[in-house]
Design a protein around this nucleic acid. Structure first.
Lengths: 133, 133, 133, 133
DNA sequence: GTGGTCTAGACCACC
DNA sequence: GTGGTCTAGACCACA
């Protein structure tokens, strides 16, 4: 598990960690039950405050992505979504809306946007994801 | 122009205004040259501080979406994006990545996601946008 | 980093700060990754309101010159311009036009103006800037 | 004498008028003793408030560029600069500095900047200016 | 400790 | 009347 922090990105450090763990799970780099680095270990590696790591793990736990077992560490749990399809659609549509608004303001036409989406999806093996298990 | 603020959303009030104005412009509800509500008027209507509205308008101005004219008001402008294509692609891909990560986490498969994107795009007349002129 | 404010200059205080930071970066006095004074510290030093400093830093951030990190401070970044060449040319030509109009009004002839430009450019090591790497 | 107002430029309307009159004088389009349009006439033509025109003319008068003769209108006066060379150099160098700072931040190299300056100067017949009279 | 947001209210320039 | 700037001081999120 490799995490990279961009101190100049404007995004809070703990959110960068959350994003990257979610990303790793999404692409299958972190399988269910795999163990995350300890807080101290990761804090030393990234040279940032352990509180920041702890906050990221807490956030991931509250989203149901990892489970902390005291004394044992933090583990990835199976992440099948518990939300109803309607709720998931509502959440996704908010993100999609924001994406489209930005695309329109940046003068990106539809085919270009679609090609970029495909390009990004390829990085995640998104097409295959549902057929592996 | 109707703007609604959710004080409990966690998103900064001024950003909610920015989002909604951009959205309205994107869907064509606010045409170029149309006048935004005055700062004081909107502040009274939403029961928030005029400075907060001013901040939102300033943000929109810095993004090239509105122009504020002291003594006259704030107006929608519509210039092509000043950013180079490479920069726009980078910015969009960040948004796309975030979208895809969430989709995977929520167990949304690719065809479902695409259908939702199409559905949202229809709201914006996105398909037509570039072909009318 | 030394900043001087002229309360009688007519130019907004926050813009004077922006100007001076940009100037310092341009001449190499502020290298990438160097930290700016904290908002409160500079506010105390210049005897102005912290919000005014914050506004200047926000402006610099929106121009891509500094990055503010809550809890850490504000730092100089150095990325290439995000603007397309055409936009940059348009912006520069506005400045050049204003310069030439003033020069003509002041009865400055072309060779004199050019010599002054060269003189000023020398202060910035402008000739060398692009050839060192 | 043609004046164009850009309501979206961010620059105050009366200053745009001042700029353009100065510009016209600079390039020789407005010769000394030529008469400016009346305030009412120009206000009707540009569809803006007569006060705004009046303010522009007052500004031009205070800079010694036009003279208002009550009942007769406003006229261009001879505009040889009365400032000492040292003062003019100081003023110009401030403008030049700002130009160079922007150029450096926009990653414009020296030859490109010079070519743009030449291009703009050509619009003003700047090379010829001193030899015509 | 840091910066970010919001409020409240002042004064100014512009139209 | 409009928006722009600045001050003063509160509260929050981040490190």
């Amino acid at each position: 598990m490799l995490i990279k922090i961009d101190q100049t990105s404007g995004r809070a450090v703990y959110l960068q960690i959350v994003d990257q763990v979610k990303h790793a799970v999404a692409v299958g780099k972190l399988a269910p039950d795999s163990r995350l680095p300890t807080i101290r270990q990761l804090a030393a590696e990234l040279v940032i405050n352990p509180n920041t790591i702890a906050k990221a793990y807490r956030q991931l736990e509250s989203e149901g992505i990892v489970a902390s077992r005291p004394g044992a560490g933090a583990f990835i749990v199976n992440t099948d979504s518990a939300l109803s399809l309607a709720v998931r659609k509502k959440l996704m549509c908010e993100l999609i809306d924001r994406l489209l608004v930005e695309a329109i303001h940046m003068n990106i036409d539809r085919p270009t946007l679609e090609s970029w989406i495909s390009e990004c999806a390829r990085k995640f093996n998104f097409e295959l994801k549902k057929e592996i298990p």
